[in-house]
Simulated assay, not measured.
Amino acid sequence: MTPKQQRGEATVELLLDAALRVYSEEGEQGLTVNAVTKASGVSLGSLYHHFGSIDGLVDALLLRWLERLLGELVTALQSTRTARTGVRSLVRAYLRFVREHPEVSMLLHSSRADRLGMTQAARLRDAQEARLTPLTEWVRHHVERGEVAPLPLPLIESLVLGPVVGTTRRWLTFGDVDLEEAARILPDRIWRSLSADPQ
């Protein structure tokens, strides 16, 4: 890597870190070009050069942390042997990530992230394909073994992540959910909805 490329990467890191800091302190309304350049010490021209706009910067920040979350979910599944223990590990890994990164989780579960997901769903899936493929393969494997009900993949995804995302949003918004309790209760409740033998 050339010195110029190294400087470019360092600038990108400064901008992404500053954007998260500004979002954490000021919320989405405070996430402006001026606020980010001031917090990062990076010039306006550099922000536009690397990201094109403040929207491009925030999208890159969302993608960075989405990739990290998906990576942690994949890692959680890789150490499990059964579908049931996989569901338990995935739910707990998701809630642990939220607890450890509340500011990031606020961004990942924001209306801005929802808008990005709705308008750029195909691009997001393509960008995260390397992370999503192991999750998809894990589901297929356990459907083929007869552990998971043979439901359409989008429904399985909704049955697993729907309750976790809903709980996360409740915790982030109202704070009236105990994430430790949720990590104990949700896995078995979710498993009942997925199991090929719900008894």
Rank of each mutant, 00 (worst) to 15 (best):
residue 2 T to V: 07
residue 3 P to Q: 12
residue 3 P to A: 10
residue 5 Q to G: 09
residue 6 Q to G: 09
residue 10 A to S: 14
residue 10 A to N: 14
residue 12 V to R: 11
residue 12 V to F: 04
residue 13 E to R: 13
residue 14 L to R: 15
residue 15 L to I: 05
residue 17 D to N: 15
residue 17 D to G: 13
residue 19 A to Q: 05
residue 20 L to H: 03
residue 22 V to G: 04
residue 25 E to G: 10
residue 29 Q to T: 14
residue 30 G to W: 00
residue 32 T to L: 02
residue 37 T to H: 06
residue 39 A to Y: 00
residue 40 S to W: 02
residue 44 L to M: 13
residue 48 Y to H: 11
residue 50 H to P: 03
residue 51 F to C: 08
residue 51 F to N: 07
residue 54 I to D: 11
residue 55 D to Q: 11
residue 56 G to P: 04
residue 58 V to I: 06
residue 60 A to T: 12
residue 62 L to R: 11
residue 63 L to I: 14
residue 63 L to D: 15
residue 65 W to C: 03
residue 67 E to F: 01
residue 70 L to A: 10
residue 72 E to G: 00
residue 72 E to W: 00
residue 74 V to K: 01
residue 75 T to Q: 13
residue 76 A to Q: 09
residue 77 L to A: 04
residue 77 L to D: 02
residue 84 R to Q: 13
residue 84 R to E: 13
residue 85 T to W: 01
residue 90 L to T: 06
residue 91 V to Y: 03
residue 94 Y to L: 02
residue 97 F to Q: 02
residue 97 F to R: 07
residue 98 V to M: 05
residue 102 P to S: 03
residue 102 P to R: 00
residue 104 V to D: 09
residue 104 V to F: 00
residue 104 V to S: 03
residue 105 S to I: 06
residue 107 L to E: 07
residue 108 L to G: 04
residue 109 H to G: 07
residue 111 S to D: 11
residue 112 R to C: 10
residue 112 R to L: 08
residue 112 R to K: 14
residue 114 D to Y: 00
residue 114 D to Q: 08
residue 114 D to K: 01
residue 116 L to Q: 11
residue 116 L to I: 08
residue 117 G to S: 07
residue 118 M to E: 15
residue 120 Q to L: 13
residue 120 Q to E: 14
residue 123 R to S: 04
residue 128 Q to S: 15
residue 128 Q to N: 15
residue 132 L to F: 01
residue 136 T to Y: 08
residue 137 E to G: 12
residue 142 H to N: 04
residue 145 R to N: 11
residue 146 G to A: 01
residue 147 E to N: 04
residue 148 V to C: 08
residue 151 L to Q: 05
residue 152 P to C: 01
residue 155 L to Q: 13
residue 156 I to P: 02
residue 157 E to T: 09
residue 160 V to M: 02
residue 162 G to M: 06
residue 163 P to D: 05
residue 164 V to C: 08
residue 165 V to L: 07
residue 166 G to E: 06
residue 167 T to E: 02
residue 169 R to Q: 12
residue 173 T to H: 11
residue 175 G to S: 00
residue 177 V to M: 15
residue 177 V to P: 05
residue 178 D to W: 02
residue 180 E to K: 09
residue 180 E to M: 12
residue 181 E to L: 12
residue 185 I to K: 01
residue 187 P to S: 05
residue 187 P to G: 03
residue 192 R to G: 01
residue 192 R to N: 07
residue 192 R to A: 01
residue 194 L to I: 08
residue 194 L to Q: 03
residue 195 S to T: 08
residue 196 A to D: 09
residue 196 A to N: 11
